[in-house]
Design a binder for these strands. Structure first.
Lengths: 225, 225
DNA sequence: ACCTAGAGTTTGAGTCGTCAAACTCATGCG
DNA sequence: CGCATGAGTTTGACGACTCAAACTCTAGGT
């Protein structure tokens, strides 16, 4: 716990924005939006992160974490994802609600409790959304996977990860039978409408926008159609 | 979560001090000490509690919670004690460390997680220290028990509750075989030295001060000596 | 090249919880 | 009975985090 709770939230947000941004830099505006804060607030907090050698930033440029900042962010991410896993696996909560709960709990977990939790869960490598759980030493192995939107018509695949954490997206996926580990097949693609039609194994066909499908990651399976 | 984390801590501290004080009032100085804060800070925070109708207080007098404040305190205590139970029963942590851990976690537990936790633990009535866990509706049944210091020489009893939360006290008790549920017998009392000698069932004789023994609660058992 | 729209920054102010230090009250010792 | 002592209160200040609003820079279109 090197930092205050607020600092932890900034580190985590910047880390995640850096991953998803092309330039490997987090834009100030997105940081502010991620934290539900005005741009001015974000600017001044980033200034503090820079002073603490957790981030680098130059006026009107993007923000990127230092090695120290990245390490801290991975630690927070580890707490977050282990807590999510606990809430789903041990307490039986629905994956559509655990993100927000973990958001609060992650700051209250000591290293000792974290390790006990990790042991209790069997040292899992992935959380319920398929996100990799950083290890205690900061190692993080991303699973290789492609966006579902890049599958072709008729392709079969296994769902390995859901990037969206919004509750309604997750409820939709669960209701459709599209959960992590499920296999599925692309029935049809309608580029004009920007929609693809998917059939999860043992479920009925669902339509989803290609933008939504882009945030679901899959690994193609050998097609024994 | 009607209140801020700090307010929750004040409510819990006042509640517990009120129980243990004869006058059913929490002295300002003890509130400050319990929270590790100066007296001035405690005074101004209590003023805020009064404004929120959570407590009553008149200048230079003691503090007591209103019905609303008591209800809130019981809710916090429920969270605290369920978390402690979880840390010991599910994660296997030692009871000498869980108090401080629970202190942090109790503020981050939502009603939903709390209920799932309660269900997972089998809706326990007591925490690992033998303290009663308030129910969701605020009901609290204290178990009847007497201080071990009031036992006579030769008396047998079952240990039902440990009031002290300090880590070293708990480690001493555990090391001596004096845990909640254990049966024991008073071997000798030396009033001059203020010491009593106890033999836990299946353990060897230990000495402890009567003041320490006063903070261990027991229920006498039929003596089939 | 300009100039404007949008992104980012600065400034001034406010809230929350805290402290130190000056002050006030209540009481029991002598 | 008075007054010193200790408990409690007030005051002024500060650090962390935030906002609104004024300001500044960058980049893209014409």
């Amino acid at each position: 716990m090197l930092a205050t709770e607020t600092v932890e939230n900034y580190l985590k947000a910047i880390y995640l924005l850096q991953r998803e941004a092309a330039a490997d830099e987090a834009p100030m505006g997105k940081i502010a939006a991620a934290l539900g804060v005005t741009a001015g607030t974000a600017t001044s907090m980033v200034k503090k992160l820079v002073a603490a050698k957790l981030a680098r930033h130059e006026r009107f440029g993007g923000v990127r974490l230092t090695a120290k900042g990245t390490r801290a962010a991975l630690d927070i991410l580890r707490r977050h994802r282990l807590v999510e896993t606990f809430l789903v696996d041990t307490l039986g909560l629905d994956w559509s609600v655990v993100h927000d709960e973990a958001e609060r709990l992650e700051h209250a977990i000591s290293p000792m409790v974290l390790d006990a939790l990790d042991r209790h869960l069997g040292r899992p490598a992935f959380d319920p959304h398929g996100d990799p759980i950083p290890r205690a030493d900061g190692a993080l192995q991303e699973s290789e996977a492609m966006p579902m939107s890049e599958l072709g018509s008729g392709d079969a695949a296994r769902l390995v990860r859901v990037l969206d954490q919004r509750g309604d997206s997750l409820r939709f996926l669960r209701a459709s039978g599209l959960k992590v580990g499920a296999t599925l097949r692309v029935v049809a693609i309608e580029p004009g409408a920007g929609v693809m039609r998917i059939r999860p194994d043992g479920g009925s066909i669902v339509s989803m926008s290609t933008t939504a499908a882009a945030r679901v990651l899959v690994r193609p399976t050998r097609d024994r159609h």
